[in-house]
Amino acid sequence: MPRQLFTDDHWNKLKSALLNLGIYDKPTLRQTVEGIYYRMRVGCPWRDLPAAFGKWNAVYKRFNAWSLQEKLMKLFRVLVVEPDLEWTFLDGSIVKAHQHSSGAAHEQETAIGKSVVGNTTKIHMAVDAGGLPIHFSVTGGEVHDCKEAPELVAKLPLVAKLPLVDYMVADKGYDSEALRAQIRNQGAVPVIPRKQNSTIGNEERDWCLYKYRHLVENLFARLKRFRAVATRYDKLKRNFESVIALACGFIWLPM
């Protein structure tokens, strides 16, 4: 029997959230969800899913249908409960796109772009003061952090259902006066160092707080324990977003 991922307590919490999203309580529901997470954890093709999880095609169809209906993204939002927004950290991480992720239908959005390391996707992430994920977006790997940041920042109060409090921390890749103004307009103080060639300098930066930016790096390390996050195998953007949403939701389960 393949190794299972959920304790009974965690499964009961996850099951309750799934049922609230309109997912049927079939006798094989836990088996199906465990199969989805198994594929995420080991990065195997769907066809190589162990028979203990049921027919691979049935597990894939459930995952694909839930992804199409955005239920897995909604699941992540349901599991984000009372985030600590005293500090919010932003960062992006590039993942390589496996050759199996190519070949999607032309009308479907893929979010795979060309960067210096080839076909890649970038995950743009926001985490709270406890290092827990609160929101993310997915773009092609060539998209600069500062270009995607305004949309990411704009959605944070809506996702968390709370106003931003105190500080938003990011690295030099987010050095933009327009972004700083947007953060201030949302009630937070930007802690973003200026680039080396800046004429303004960094004297006003809270360097003690900036050192805690490792929390978002730690989160990426936790997410990439799932091999289907560390290397992208999914052809469609929505399916890869669902994989990240499930990985983020799993991190919230013990909370």
Score class of each variant (00 low, 15 high):
residue 96 K to E: 13
residue 28 T to I: 08
residue 249 G to P: 07
residue 68 L to N: 14
residue 204 E to S: 15
residue 182 Q to H: 02
residue 180 R to Q: 10
residue 222 R to V: 06
residue 96 K to R: 15
residue 132 L to G: 00
residue 78 V to P: 04
residue 39 R to E: 09
residue 240 F to M: 10
residue 51 A to F: 03
residue 227 R to T: 11
residue 100 H to P: 00
residue 110 T to K: 10
residue 250 F to C: 09
residue 192 I to H: 01
residue 165 V to W: 08
residue 82 E to Y: 04
residue 128 D to K: 11
residue 186 Q to K: 13
residue 62 R to W: 13
residue 160 A to K: 05
residue 243 V to G: 02
residue 75 L to A: 14
residue 179 L to F: 04
residue 63 F to H: 09
residue 54 G to A: 02
residue 94 I to G: 06
residue 78 V to H: 09
residue 213 R to V: 03
residue 162 L to T: 09
residue 245 A to S: 08
residue 81 V to R: 06
residue 115 S to D: 15
residue 157 P to F: 11
residue 26 K to A: 13
residue 248 C to S: 06
residue 220 F to Q: 05
residue 3 R to G: 03
residue 115 S to W: 05
residue 51 A to N: 08
residue 112 I to G: 00
residue 1 M to A: 11
residue 20 N to T: 13
residue 249 G to I: 11
residue 186 Q to S: 08
residue 47 R to Y: 05
residue 236 L to K: 15
residue 141 G to F: 14
residue 123 I to T: 03
residue 18 L to T: 12
residue 80 V to M: 01
residue 134 I to W: 01
residue 14 L to S: 03
residue 137 S to A: 08
residue 55 K to M: 03
residue 20 N to Q: 13
residue 117 V to A: 14
residue 156 L to C: 12
residue 110 T to H: 05
residue 37 Y to W: 15
residue 11 W to I: 10
residue 98 H to Y: 05
residue 71 K to E: 13
residue 180 R to T: 07
residue 56 W to R: 10
residue 5 L to H: 09
residue 156 L to A: 11
residue 245 A to W: 01
residue 88 T to W: 10
residue 121 T to Q: 09
residue 183 I to S: 00
residue 169 V to N: 01
residue 79 L to P: 04
residue 209 L to C: 06
residue 190 P to R: 06
residue 227 R to D: 05
residue 107 E to N: 12
residue 198 S to W: 08
residue 88 T to P: 01
residue 94 I to A: 08
residue 187 G to W: 09
residue 240 F to P: 07
residue 205 R to D: 00
residue 167 Y to M: 06
residue 6 F to N: 05
residue 50 P to H: 02
residue 193 P to E: 01
residue 48 D to W: 12
residue 26 K to H: 09
residue 171 D to T: 07
residue 24 Y to P: 03
residue 146 C to M: 06
residue 21 L to T: 14
residue 135 H to T: 01
residue 167 Y to K: 13
residue 236 L to V: 00
residue 147 K to M: 00
residue 47 R to K: 14
residue 43 G to A: 10
residue 45 P to Y: 07
residue 65 A to H: 12
residue 139 T to P: 04
residue 218 N to M: 00
residue 192 I to Y: 02
residue 12 N to L: 14
residue 161 K to R: 15
residue 120 T to V: 06
residue 66 W to T: 05
residue 167 Y to G: 00
residue 161 K to I: 08
residue 18 L to E: 09
residue 190 P to Y: 10
residue 77 R to T: 04
residue 11 W to D: 02
residue 62 R to D: 11
residue 29 L to F: 11
residue 88 T to D: 04
residue 139 T to S: 13
